[in-house]
């Protein structure tokens, strides 16, 4: 029996693949699919009282969501903040990666490790450290006041959308660095030399050659930053104040203080769908653009 099974295993590639995948498959099923399924089903229920839930099927929670201006505007704000964070991160990470990929000759790995060094501390600690930098009596405000440049501390720095954007940008920069670096490093430098040789200036060469060839990395970075920041909860909770609140904070409230599990579940599902749509649109359009880059 054992022998036949061994022989089957040796011959069957799918069997090998599934057995290698099985630990991950079990984990994903238990920790992802089951909770997701529960959340989805809860979004079709009704909260009757503080402890009671009516388990009959209804889509009223989704209608509720779009009837509450607050929720819709929070969803829009979440997407907007994420887009800004993604854009600023790309804008700051791209030149760094460009430099490492084309101008650093030795110890490229060391540069990358050094750049990701801040990310060895926990996300939460980094959010708290931004509190120290941006706060009313924080590093920026107190040094500006001590230097005599300001009389009153800048209030827009802390507990605002700005604070959330700055913190999220810093928090996700490292994740943008890697896909960007990989796609830029893959570009054969002789292509850039060839473009220069064929009469293009540095700037034109960047537009015509470097940028299109690094698009896969740009798309990767966009998705890697956009997807998690839309649903980010810690940063807006700690630094957002009322102005910088995002949809995830509201969802947390529905599952906690407000105790309206079905509406929270519906909001989460809507957010999930929004992220999925944005992801599909971004990857589809850019895939069209980059079909020929391999």
């Amino acid at each position: 029996m054992l022998q036949t099974w061994k022989a089957f295993y040796a011959r069957s590639d799918p069997a090998k693949a599934y057995s290698l995948l099985s630990p991950a498959l079990i984990l994903v099923t238990l920790a992802m699919l089951v909770p997701l399924g529960l959340m989805l089903s809860f979004s079709f229920f009704t909260q009757i009282s503080f402890t009671e839930i009516d388990y009959s099927f209804t889509i009223q929670r989704y209608i509720d969501f779009f009837q509450k201006n607050l929720l819709v505007s929070l969803l829009i704000k979440s997407v907007k903040i994420s887009f800004i964070v993604t854009f600023v991160t790309l804008l700051t990470a791209y030149p760094v990666c460009y430099y490492i990929a084309f101008y650093v000759k030795k110890n490229k790995m060391l540069w990358l490790v050094l750049l990701t060094l801040p990310f060895w501390t926990s996300y939460l600690l980094r959010v708290f450290s931004w509190k120290i930098i941006l706060g009313t009596k924080g590093v920026i405000n107190s040094s500006l006041i001590n230097a005599g440049l300001l009389n009153e501390p800048l209030t827009f720095l802390m507990y605002s959308e700005t604070a959330v954007i700055i913190t999220l940008t810093h928090a996700w920069a490292a994740f943008a660095l890697l896909p960007l670096y990989v796609s830029l490093d893959k570009i054969d430098f002789s292509l850039i030399e060839a473009a220069r040789d064929l009469g293009l200036s540095r700037f034109e060469t960047f537009w015509k050659i470097t940028l299109p060839l690094s698009l896969p990395g740009i798309i990767g970075a966009i998705l890697i930053i956009f997807i998690p920041t839309v649903g980010d909860y810690v940063t807006p909770a700690l630094l957002g104040g009322t102005d910088g609140r995002m949809l995830s904070n509201m969802i947390q409230a529905y599952f906690g203080k407000v105790n309206n599990l079905p509406l929270g579940a519906a909001s989460a599902t809507i957010m999930l769908i929004t992220v999925a749509i944005v992801t599909i649109v971004v990857s589809y359009t850019t895939k069209k653009l980059t079909q020929r880059i391999s």
């Binding site: 002789s190 030399e193 060839a194 220069r196 040789d197 293009l200 391999s294």
Partner: peptide, 18 residues
Amino acid sequence: PDKRPTNMVFQNYAIFPH
């Protein structure tokens, strides 16, 4: 290079892939 009346055939050809 873009101001010189020379052109180069590269060792790996450097054909733009896109």
